[in-house]
Design a binder for these strands. Structure first.
Length: 602
DNA sequence: GTACCTATAC
């Protein structure tokens, strides 16, 4: 729209903001009235309109209007920068800022706080530091908005909290935003303890609580599983009357879920007078990890409040289907994703890759993976884990190479996926090569989980002594999962002495590991050490240790059937035994000799 | 006329 035409059409324009400073009576009746479209007035009008355009995501219109303003002042420039920041186009905001400085326009405090938010969005500490220098040059140290945005930028982008702390220390009159920014800085970089330390200092200095600081402090409690402190903040929230503020209430639901207090999460959820989509998503995501079938049930109730699922909901629901390996249900969710046009969402596509892999349809995982316009680290990892669990280690290794070529740097989890895939495919030397490359080429220090993978890699292939040697050479004390990998290998390849050692180490670390006791007693039995076998069993009975029964389930024609060893009841049991006999027959024909040692069970 | 901090997903 042409700026000159703007004034004549302003009355009919649907999104034109109200003019707050109309002409005075004197101006209206002066003999020589000022022209109604003088530059400054137009600039104010245009700035208002630019903001409205951004709010309605009309970017081209905003830029066109901005380009047509004859004399653009700092406010118009700032409106452009904050507009691009508002919609998440941070690099664009930065470009406008550079353009502005090139034209010799000085930024004000509004500009600086907006552009710092853009630096935060770009995760660019160097750009942020440049703006910091500029802010000092223009004497903005005293401005609260500038100081708080600087802190937030450093807290998000800098390697440590040191820079943010430095800014924080120099603020004379810290306000509530300053405190909240520090708490969130620590919490969002995974240091919940650090966040709570700042929160407690805030309380000591008698700063009034506000909804922002409460919800982030609750988040800090969730992240470290500090339920008792979370409950105290919950009480403070009730006392201050913040419960009606949804982000606060939602963070409380999240806290109870993450601290595994599911009955409290559920109760709080149902007692909430108002719930929004995020409340539902929080509960669905919370239950997805602990009890996926409950998660699906909650999802089925969402419609009763007239809410429609978004990407977050569907990601959790897809993950729940993956955990339960319910293909039919997962396919229905996939249909819903396509129907709602969410196919382009990477997080959702990653969840679908995992779901199809866990439901046994690796070809569908691959189809989704291939159709993704942009694959992130998680996409590659999910696909590689999928191939690994299907025993297709060569595909995993191939994908790893492709991923590196595409410019994505692997992390520890990717290496674990490769090592585990090699282990399940018997690619021992290939796996060892990747273990070496991880340390030498990528400078990762192996942790317990990685050592566990390598022990499993060697052990599964029967190289049990080498696996033990690796454990001995570990630079730190191996945990029970590393010993567990060795124990599994000892059991499979009959190394009773090493097996006893591994089992003993696990029981030293965790005396109540029922599975370990069972395996150890089985090792004694297989070795003919019946006296020790009996002693072990007696010990287990005395300690009240009971192995949790392994339950299997299968989905047939939209119905889930579950069963345990020795099941006698259920309409489907006869069918199961029928199939079992047929499979045993097939195995015999294929020449398989069953290992009867493992039939000793509790 | 323009600005800072809070909640959900792989």
């Amino acid at each position: 729209m042409n700026i000159r035409k703007l004034v004549s059409t302003c009355h009919s324009h649907p999104i034109l903001p109200i003019i707050k400073h109309p002409l005075t009576r004197a101006q209206q009746f002066s003999i020589q009235p000022e022209p109604p479209n003088r530059p400054q007035g137009l600039s104010i009008l245009a700035t208002n309109l630019i903001k409205s355009y951004f709010e309605k995501r009309m970017l081209k219109e905003a830029r066109k209007l901005f380009d047509e303003i004859p004399e653009r002042d700092v406010v118009a420039w700032t409106a452009m920068i904050s507009g691009y920041t508002f919609i998440g186009h941070y690099s664009q905001a930065w470009m406008v800022f550079l353009e502005m400085t090139r034209e010799g326009m000085y930024p004000n405090a509004f500009t600086v706080s907006s552009v710092l938010k853009a630096c935060k969005g770009m995760e660019s500490c160097s750009c942020g530091a440049m703006v910091h220098g500029l802010a000092l040059k223009h004497g903005m140290e005293g401005c609260m908005y500038v100081e708080n945005s600087l802190m937030d930028m450093y807290a998000t982008c800098s390697v440590s909290m040191e820079d943010a702390c430095m800014v924080f220390q120099h603020i004379h009159a810290k306000n509530a935003v300053s405190w909240t920014t520090m708490i969130s800085g620590y919490t969002h970089r995974g240091d919940g303890h650090g966040g709570l330390r700042v929160f407690q200092r805030m309380l000591q200095e008698e700063v009034e609580l506000n909804p922002f600081s409460c919800s982030i402090a609750i988040r800090a409690c969730s992240s470290i599983g500090f339920l008792s402190f979370g409950k105290q903040i919950h009480a403070a929230v009730v006392k201050h009357g913040f419960e009606s503020i949804l982000p606060v209430a939602n963070s409380i639901v999240d806290m109870y879920c993450r601290c595994n207090s599911f009955s409290e999460a559920n109760q709080y959820f149902y007692e909430m007078p108002h719930r929004d989509l995020i409340t539902w998503n929080t509960l669905i995501a919370g239950f997805e990890k602990s009890d996926s079938s409950v998660s699906l049930y909650i999802f089925s109730l969402m419609g009763t409040e007239g809410l429609s699922p978004n990407c977050f909901t569907l990601t959790s629901v897809t993950a729940a289907c993956a955990n339960l390996a319910v293909l039919n249900c997962g396919q229905q969710v996939h249909g819903g994703i396509v129907r709602r046009g969410h196919e382009g969402n990477s997080a959702l596509a990653n969840a679908l890759i995992d779901m199809y892999a866990k439901c046994g349809i690796i070809a569908d995982s691959r189809r989704i993976f291939d159709q993704m316009p942009r694959r992130d680290l998680v996409s590659w990892t999910s696909m590689m884990i999928g191939y690994g669990t299907h025993g297709n280690g060569r595909e995993t290794v191939g994908l790893f190479k492709e991923m590196v070529v595409s410019g994505i740097r692997p992390d520890r989890i990717v290496f674990m996926a490769v090592l585990s895939a090699c282990s399940h495919t018997g690619l021992v030397d290939e796996g060892l090569k990747y273990f070496k490359s991880m340390v030498v080429d990528y400078c990762f220090t192996p942790n317990q989980e990685i050592y566990g993978c390598v022990v499993d890699l060697l052990g599964r292939a029967g190289r049990v002594e080498e696996a033990y040697e690796l454990i001995v050479m570990m630079p730190f004390e191996p945990n029970e999962s590393v010993w567990g990998a060795l124990l599994g290998a000892c059991k499979a390849h009959r190394h009773p002495n090493l097996g006893r050692l591994a089992a003993q180490k696990i029981l030293d670390l965790r005396p109540n590991m029922a599975e370990t006791c069972v395996i150890l007693s089985n090792i004694f039995a297989a070795d003919g050490k019946w006296g020790e076998f009996a002693k072990m069993r007696k010990l287990m009975r005395g300690m009240g240790i009971k192995k949790e029964t392994g339950r299997s389930w299968i989905e047939v024609k939209n119905q889930v059937y579950s069963f345990v060893v020795g099941d006698k009841v259920g309409s489907h049991i006869e069918l199961v035994y029928g199939w079992l006999e047929m499979l045993v027959q097939h195995m015999k024909e294929a020449g398989y000799v069953p290992d009867l040692d493992c039939l000793l069970r509790d």
